[in-house]
Every structure is written in C-alpha cells, then in structure tokens.
Amino acid sequence: MSQPLLEVQQVFKNFGGFAALSGVNIYVNPGERLGLIGPNGSGKTTMINCISGLLTPEKGKIIFEGNDITQMTPHHRARAGIMRTFQIPKPFNSMTVVENLCIPLEYAAEHKTSLSVAEEEARKILTLIGIEALGDLKPTGLTQVDMRKMELARSLAGRPKLLILDEVMAGLSGSEVDEILEILFKLNEQGITIIMIEHVMRAVLGFSKRISVLNTGLNIAEGTPDEILNNPEVEKVYLGE
C-alpha cells in the first residue's frame, strides 16, 4: 500500500484542563477526498490548527510525506504544501483581493515569482473561483460568500498538495455550494488532496470518498459516506439516543 500523504498519530491537545483532542488518528492518502465531521466542540478545528501548525500538540506525531512535521513552523508547512482556509475568514484587510493572493504566491508557492507574474497568477486563480471581478477591491467590501471564495482562492495560491477547508460552505446557498463543489472536484482531479471540515452534510457526503467522525476529541467512526450515514454511533452523537 502506498504511504499516506498526511498521517496524524495519537495526537493529544489540552487547553488548560479541557482535553480538546485525546489521541486522535487521521490519515489521508495522496489524491484522496477526506471529510472530517463531528458536532460542535468535537475538536475538528483544533485538529486543523495542529496540522497547519498554529498549535503544537502535547503528544503524538504529525507526518507529512513521510517527514515528521510536528515541530515545524506553520510557514514551513505552508511551503511544504499544506494550505488551509479559516473558519472565520482572516483576510489581509489593507490589501486588495489580488494582493491577498500574492502573499502565498510570493511566500509559499515553490517558485519565487516576481510581483507582476504573481499578480497575473492571482487573477487566473480568481477566474477559476469565479470572482475575477473582485480583484481590485479590498476584502472589507466583500460579502461573506465572496470572502469565503477569496479564502479558498488564497489557499490555492500557495500551490497546495494538501488543502484543508475549514467550513468554506457555511452560509452559502444551495447553488453556491454546488459551484464550490464543482471547483473542488476539479482541483482534486488535478491531484490536490483535500480535507473538508463541514457542517453542510449534503456537501461533505457528496464530496468525500471517506469520512472520519470526531466527538469530544476522539475518533468515533470512519468509512464511506454510506457507512457513516448508517453508523448507529454517529447517529447517537448527532441526534441523541
């Protein structure tokens, strides 16, 4: 069997006395589409912060492409090919949308580009996401939906091998969800591995090849979308007994 692109082994993370993650295991194979679901407070975002490096776990290992990256700084992880979006968008507000994309293009993408090349690339990515008209606006003037699309575009600008989406669909209408899904399928076909954290079930069930379920910082189930839907444990967590 081929080596997973990312492997999270027995990760523990506490905030004071609160155990956010208590020995979580996750893996994702190259080219795979993994869904990560769980009720609020189950540790999904903490998990993402540990993978992207904003948090360092107390115990456990994070392996990316066979290398232990547990102690690596977030910007090195970004350069290695792990890009993420934020649940609450974190745009660079003093810059235009194009300039926002130029930051990862200049800092994270493998080739150091000149600014004019980066701007051109940025506009191409915006066209791909379908917000090319917003290129010269400041993020403060964007709607919540466009802001999320910008976050997605910015993480694409880092030329990710692994793209982690933290609730990009939240607040989007049905047709917008389909629109984003279509883009994500296209990106996945190009070889980008995607981890999707999502509450919009239609999106995550339709998109993922495999789904991992977290609850109170523990893995409780894993399987194909169908298996997850029929899993009594998952039903109990989401709907109660």
């Binding site: 992207s52 490096g53 904003l54 700084t73 977030p74 910007h75 970004a78 350069r79 890009m83 993420r84 934020f86 974190k90 745009p91 660079f92 507000n93 003093s94 810059m95 930051i103 990862p104 800092y107 994270a108 993408a109 910015r154 993480s155 600008a157 880092g158």
Partner: peptide, 10 residues
C-alpha cells in the same frame, strides 16, 4: 493584518 493568516500562507 493577520499574523495567523500570514503564517499559514508561508
């Protein structure tokens, strides 16, 4: 603008 977002974009 945002230190976390800066780190995560390299």
């Amino acid at each position: 603008d945002d230190e976390d977002a800066a780190e995560c974009t390299g």
